[in-house]
Design a protein around this nucleic acid. Sequence first.
RNA 1: GGGGCCAUAGCUCAGCGGUUAGAGCAGGGGACUCAUAAUCCCUUGGUCGGGGGUUCGAAUCCCUCUGGCCCUACCA
Length: 686
Amino acid sequence: MTARRILVTSALPYANGPIHIGHLVEYIQTDIWVRFQKLIGNRCVYVCADDTHGTAIMIRARNEGRSEEELIAAMQAAHERDFAGFDIEFDNYGSTNAAENRELCGQFWQALRGAGLIVERDVEQLFDPVAQTFLADRFVRGTCPKCKSPNQPGDNCSACGQTYSPSELIDPQSTLSGATPELRSAKHLFVQLQQLHDFLSEWVENSGALQSETANYLKGHFLSDELRDWDISRPAPYFGFEIPDSPGNYWYVWFDAPIGYIASTAQWCAAHGEQLADWWQSDATEIHHFIGKDITYFHTLFWPGMLKTAGYSLPTKVRIHGFLNVGGQKMSKSIGTLITAEKYLEHLDPSYLRYFYATKLTPRVEDLDLGIDEFADKVNSDLVGKVVNLASRTAKFAHALGLSETYPDDGGLFANAAAAGERIAAAYEACDYSRAMRLIMELADAANPFIEHAQPWVLKKDPAREAELRDVCTIGLNLFRQLCVYLSPVLPRLAERCGELLGDPITRWAQSQQPLTGRSVQKFTHMLTRVKPEDLQKMIDENRDQAAASQADTPDAGTAEDRWNDSGQPLADEPLAEEITIDDFAKVDLRIARVVAAEQVPEARKLLKLTLSLGGEERRQVFAGIKAAYEPDQLVGRLVVMVANLKPRQMKFGLSEGMVAAAGPGGPDVFVITVDEGAQPGQRVH
RNA sequence: GGGGCCAUAGCUCAGCGGUUAGAGCAGGGGACUCAUAAUCCCUUGGUCGGGGGUUCGAAUCCCUCUGGCCCUACCA
């Protein structure tokens, strides 16, 4: 069989934030696959890059008072450091801001122009006259045109769920400067994807590149209808590449990001004397993209359309994974489960996470859950108790004796495990790591009883049985080594330690098929320590406390103000509103109220139904968007602050007669305002 | 409202038309002491979410209901 030539990519991490354990699902998944391909002898190149363009980067650089280039260089260094910390090995890690990428973007652009796919159209968009920039939806906030809730995002209302365009907002405000945006018209360039409709339908259905659920999704949601034109340009100012034949306009970040895959490959080619065309324009090369389900649309419609038009290879497979939950819930800063790569590495061994993810990953687009106890159980039982234990209980004896000259009779254990290699390899190939780990652990389960029955500790006591003892250790260590070969894509460090122990580095899958004999054994040292669930919990707690410290203000008597070290981010996210008079404020009647009943609204996504008492017989029914943050039981009996004179509003689930005051960005991060002891329901807040 | 995925032992899952439904972990009992209080042996535990159907035969295929998750639309 000839070696396959395979190019692999992971999605490009955005240069606006650090890598966290959610991102790592993808990079670990990809890295395992790449290591496996290399191990079985295929030619495999893994490229990635930082995704550096867009308004968010421009704004952030501006806020931090440095150039975009400085910002993205710092982020890239941090990203590369984090990846290296998790043993994720790229063949090339580039940047979408690289010269190679600009060049390739030009090529793609020419091809799209040449194919007659580009049209120009004026687009009306809100413009910030102070910041001198057009505003993406998320940079505008204002009053919902439907329910009149103030301070809502630019695309939909968090109170009533209404969707709208930012220009429909009442009293819109730029979150960048606080200025009132103006509606301005600007020229945008569009790709008429509809012209590629037939090609895309055919590709989605018949290429075999997509999981069936993904193909169904695309057919149902996009391909069943006319494909909309894709707005591919942004007017200045914008951090990105200016479009050569359209001065003042820049390619939208989603245009140059995937081209970054190719640019990164080009850098690798230049460094290794390879031809780019052999990797991106050759039927002899497979291309595998690993992505998260959130960016399916870009990689399965626009990207194939761009590749086809520009004469590049279409992806062989787009391998889509789900999101990470922790403890059955979405990762959350306030709970502490949004753990950065850096924070994880302060506390735990990266091998744990690599193995844990491997046991969880399947070829399907499913979310996976990290449970604390499960994490510790898997690592401790499987890796420490079963696998490493094999070496730990035999290497000490073997250190003095070395391995037997010929491989002894082990009752077929080694041969059986060698035969399982094919099934394990097939599981890796299919990205069914969960299956691969199960198969490998079955082998480990068979190996420990062998040692038990052979009783090396008894043999050791009788000098006449030294040869027997050596045979038992030879078998134990070979079974261990075999497991290390199979696990090496997941646990490169363990494989390395195994190689050191036996003086034979693990570099090829075929090493699992042939036992090692007649050589010395190095002194055994710990290869992997146990993990305690408390260690994980401690990491989460610490993370939560830090998040709280940088977000909330929890006064602490006698401490200097600058010790709080509060982030400026919340204020930046939501700038101060326009100045009002005391009379304006007096219009809002805030009252202390006691939550006398709270219940779930099963059909509602965000809402809890609260009954508030204003003292005496006064009761108000309020629907509050705090479902994700509070259990009803936590609220009953508490004093809260309510907007008591808000016009009642008929909602799907009943009449809502006010609002409960709360802070935070939403979702699980909502914090109801509490009142100091002594306040009475019904009292007004002045 | 539409679409998708899922529901098997306390937990994580395997089995996906064919003999009495499995594994690991956890639980119970015993053994051992080489090993990171690791390991080994034995063992408890499931009307395979409910109900229909197809079949000689269904956890496995079809329909339906219930419950959970995701996507998408819309109403409020």
